[in-house]
Structure formats: structure tokens, C-alpha cells
């Protein structure tokens, strides 16, 4: 289940614009990898190439290899839709389907995969909601629309939806930036739980959050606006935040820029 990701010489382009340059890194299974860096450095772009969501923007393309347990997800024969079914994603804005019930939201991915057995769906819905620490709050309103929950609950609903399909990898794109501190804490606790089972990659603007939740941290930077972003270094989170190898990382985490 939890799979390893290797990026080898990855370059990302939007049309003629070179967005991210030469990224090499490895994401270890059952751990949390955080991407930090200033705005525009390409950290979200890299994240979105991991499930081929960046392809939704016209003209986007990737060079190099992105291997999921050794298999290139950009192989000619590989369908982006198939890739996304095994890699879950949680977005910055909580985005449950507003008119679908809480239960249908959670099992939406399973239904896409053709699961129709009502009993199985109900079981998965409960297990996923428990896994997302939301079961107690919504167990009496499973048939109410998902749009009626609070922002923090909606985000946990989205996490439940993502883990319901038992993904190989869970991607999180600034999952707490639209949430209040209490909800943020709930999500961070949840991430700590989830990493026992899943490979998690999280992009965050909040360096304290990266320090709190991740096992390894990658720092992205760009030399100037219009230049491609690049990975400055990636290492154990503890090392990045106490004794980074690169001066730029040191400057960024100590608040000298960014």
C-alpha cells in the first residue's frame, strides 16, 4: 500500500515557462515529507505533478522520471485518471461535493472505482470517518449535505474521502491554510496518525507546521521572479531546522527572507 516515490531529474514547464528545475528527491513510505519555501518557488507545482493534477493547466509538461515504487507514472501507457485513483489529494480549500451527503462524499472515490455493495460502502465510510477523526461529530448526520459542515470538519471530510480508497500516497496542498488554529491542530494530529499507514507529502507555508508534522523537509527556492524554482536541499526535518547544509535554508527558516 504505502509506496515510495522517487523524482529523478524532474523539470516542469508551463508552455515556454520553466517553472521548476532539476528536482531529485525520494519520499519514504509511512513518513511525512514536507515541502517549504517562499511563494512561487514551485513546491505546489511539484506536489501536483505527483498525481498529474498539474496537467489540468494547458501547456503543462514534465521531463524526467517520477517513479511510484519503481514505476514511472508518466509512462506512455499510463493514464492520468488511473494514477489519481491511487494517489489521494487534499486541497488548500476544503472542497467536499456540496450537494452530496456526508456519506456519499466519503465513498465518492470508491463509487468511481465501481464499488456498488451498499454494506461495503457503509463500512468504508465509517472506517474512513473514524480514521479522519470525524466519525463522532457526523455519525448522526451522514445523510445531510457535506456542504453543511464547518470548515475544519469539511477538510477532515476531504481527508476521509481521500483515504477511503486506501491510496498509495496522500498529497496535501497547504491543507490548514484556510482553517482556524483548533481545526489546524486536529488536522496535524490526524497527519501524525495517518503516517502509520500512508506515505504523506505536505506543502505548507507554515514552517512551525513543517517542523511539527514532518519527518523530512525539502526547501524550495527561486533565484528571482521569472526564474525556475529548484530544490535547495532535502533532509531530516530535525537537521533542516537546526543545522541545515545550505546558507539559503538557514536564512529562510530563521526568517531573514520569504
Amino acid at each position: 500500500m504505502a509506496k515510495r516515490i522517487d523524482l529523478k531529474d524532474v523539470d516542469i514547464y508551463y508552455g515556454a515557462f520553466h517553472a521548476v528545475q532539476n528536482v531529485n528527491l525520494t519520499v519514504i513510505p509511512r513518513s511525512v515529507t514536507a515541502f517549504i519555501g517562499p511563494s512561487g518557488c514551485g513546491k505546489s507545482t511539484v506536489l501536483r505533478t505527483l498525481n498529474r493534477m498539474h496537467e489540468e493547466i494547458a501547456g503543462a509538461r514534465v521531463e524526467g522520471e517520477i517513479l511510484l515504487d519503481g514505476e514511472n507514472i508518466y509512462d506512455r501507457g499510463t493514464d492520468a485518471v488511473a494514477v489519481r485513483r491511487t494517489i489521494g489529494m487534499v486541497f488548500q480549500m476544503p472542497n467536499p461535493f456540496p450537494t452530496m451527503s456526508v456519506r456519499d462524499n466519503v465513498v465518492a472515490g470508491l463509487k468511481l472505482q465501481g464499488v456498488r455493495d451498499k454494506k461495503k460502502l457503509d463500512e468504508v465510510a465509517e472506517a474512513s470517518l473514524r480514521g479522519a477523526n470525524l466519525w463522532k461529530e457526523v455519525k448522526d448526520r451522514l445523510d445531510k449535505p457535506g456542504g453543511g459542515l464547518s470548515g475544519g470538519q469539511q477538510q477532515r471530510l476531504c481527508i476521509a474521502r481521500a483515504i477511503a480508497v486506501q491510496p498509495d500516497v496522500l498529497l496535501m496542498d497547504e491543507p490548514c491554510s484556510a482553517l482556524d488554529p483548533i481545526s489546524t491542530l486536529a488536522i496535524e494530529d490526524l497527519i501524525a496518525d495517518l503516517k502509520k499507514q500512508y506515505t504523506i507529502v505536505i506543502v505548507t507555508h507554515n514552517m512551525q507546521q513543517a517542523a511539527r508534522v514532518s519527518d523530512q523537509t525539502g526547501f524550495f527556492n527561486l533565484e528571482a521572479t521569472g526564474k525556475p524554482g529548484h530544490l535547495v536541499e532535502i533532509d531530516d526535518t530535525e537537521k533542516i531546522f537546526s543545522n541545515p547544509t545550505e546558507q539559503a535554508t538557514e536564512d529562510y527558516i530563521s526568517g531573514r527572507f520569504g
Partner: peptide, 22 residues
């Protein structure tokens, strides 16, 4: 909403059914 459906691995028709039509 479109991204939510796509990230779950929805095909174009499924995106229409899950996001556009509702």
C-alpha cells in the same frame, strides 16, 4: 469542485456528473 472530482480519478464524464451537473 472540478479538482475534487479529478483528484479522485474521475473521467471527464464523471467530473460532469459529480461537479458540473449538481
Amino acid at each position: 469542485q472540478i479538482e475534487a472530482a479529478k483528484a479522485l480519478g474521475a473521467t471527464r464524464w464523471e467530473v460532469i456528473r459529480m461537479a458540473t451537473l449538481p
